[in-house]
Amino acid sequence: MKTDQLFQHYLKEAETDFSGWDFSHVTETGRLASGMLSWSYGSMAKTLMAESTSMLDMGTGGGELLSKLQPFPPRVCATEGYKPNFPIAKGRLEPFGVKVVEVEPDNQLRFPDKHFDLIINKHEEYEPSEVRRVLQDGGTFLTQQVGWSDCQDINRLLGAPVNEEYAHWNLEFAHKQLEGHGFKVLLSKQEFPVQRFYDIGALIYYLKAIPWQVVDFSVEDYVDLLFELHLKIKRAGYLDIKQDRFVLRAVGI
């Protein structure tokens, strides 16, 4: 291990700072790639935004995605509950007239009843009753979610425990939950694309950016198993990990 200079290089690179939800350090360099879905959350959001007058983006992260979905409806708000992301989102979105609101917990919405005709949500926790409360009758809720089984191959390969708290979180549960809180579901779909890591540094970067995948992850604690994966990637050229994604589009009734 000590004589593998490439592995040591990736361990050193893992010290790279991470902010917002910007994975460009590994995605735009082609070191991490995700398989295709049969739907586009961004395209669906753009279409709905064209007919909206007041919208909310839940869990905007650092505002990376929302900032690219312009032009905006006349009134646009965004929420963020992760404190390090909040100032990043404000700095990126407020120049475009977006009101960015910090929320805690992040599924509680500090807005009046029936305040929006469109609510979008990508990979953010939500409480259906809260979403329905601030959504106008006939308004649309669009969400793409990460299912519980997402990337559990990583945990298995590292011998790390899987968080059983969210074992129920899948398309069927979320669909029924929305129907039980005043929504009519118009689109309901789940798929399992592959996420491909082309070097161990990209995997380490991902695990540091997504701290809930392997709780309390540190390179030091997993260095031997990371080295084994590094050798596996060198032999095969990549490491494939199964993702879990589902999308729901619903209207308030």
Score class of each variant (00 low, 15 high):
31 R>W: 04
206 Y>E: 06
205 Y>V: 09
15 E>K: 12
89 A>E: 10
66 L>V: 09
215 V>G: 05
238 Y>Q: 11
143 T>A: 12
160 A>S: 12
150 D>H: 15
117 D>S: 05
127 E>M: 04
84 P>D: 06
239 L>H: 03
19 S>F: 14
91 G>I: 06
174 A>P: 00
250 A>E: 06
187 L>T: 15
38 S>W: 12
145 Q>E: 11
35 G>C: 05
22 D>E: 07
211 P>G: 11
27 T>M: 09
177 Q>F: 10
12 K>I: 11
164 E>R: 15
28 E>R: 13
53 T>A: 02
122 K>Y: 01
188 S>F: 04
245 R>L: 07
12 K>M: 09
25 H>F: 13
132 R>P: 01
140 T>I: 15
101 V>Y: 01
68 K>A: 14
34 S>G: 13
100 V>R: 00
40 S>Y: 03
138 G>H: 04
53 T>C: 05
176 K>D: 13
39 W>Y: 14
231 L>I: 02
6 L>D: 15
236 A>E: 13
47 T>E: 15
33 A>D: 07
61 G>E: 04
42 G>H: 10
204 I>C: 02
130 E>M: 05
20 G>P: 00
155 N>F: 09
82 Y>D: 04
130 E>A: 11
42 G>A: 10
84 P>M: 06
10 Y>L: 00
22 D>H: 04
249 R>H: 00
238 Y>L: 08
7 F>C: 01
151 C>M: 10
186 L>S: 12
129 S>Y: 01
120 I>C: 07
114 K>N: 14
110 R>S: 15
93 L>D: 06
25 H>W: 08
165 E>V: 04
66 L>I: 03
87 P>V: 03
238 Y>R: 13
253 I>T: 14
102 E>C: 03
103 V>R: 06
40 S>T: 07
67 S>F: 14
191 E>H: 08
64 E>G: 10
77 C>L: 13
230 H>M: 05
12 K>F: 04
174 A>T: 15
208 K>N: 09
105 P>Q: 11
181 H>F: 12
107 N>E: 14
78 A>V: 08
130 E>S: 08
7 F>A: 07
228 E>T: 01
163 N>T: 07
144 Q>W: 05
140 T>Q: 06
148 W>D: 02
9 H>W: 13
249 R>A: 14
208 K>Y: 02
239 L>D: 01
92 R>V: 07
135 L>N: 08
27 T>W: 02
94 E>C: 06
158 L>G: 04
132 R>M: 00
100 V>G: 01
237 G>L: 03
196 R>S: 07
43 S>Y: 07
96 F>E: 14
143 T>I: 10
232 K>S: 12
170 N>H: 13
92 R>L: 12
206 Y>R: 03
183 F>Q: 02
105 P>D: 12
108 Q>V: 13
39 W>A: 05
108 Q>T: 09
10 Y>C: 03
116 F>C: 09
249 R>E: 12
68 K>T: 11
201 G>D: 09
200 I>A: 04
16 T>R: 13
201 G>M: 05
32 L>C: 10
159 G>M: 04
111 F>E: 08
225 L>W: 12
226 L>I: 03
28 E>H: 11
34 S>A: 12
146 V>Y: 03
10 Y>N: 01
130 E>V: 11
243 Q>Y: 07
217 F>V: 10
47 T>G: 10
57 D>M: 07
162 V>N: 02
8 Q>Y: 08
109 L>N: 07
4 D>H: 07
15 E>F: 05
247 V>G: 03
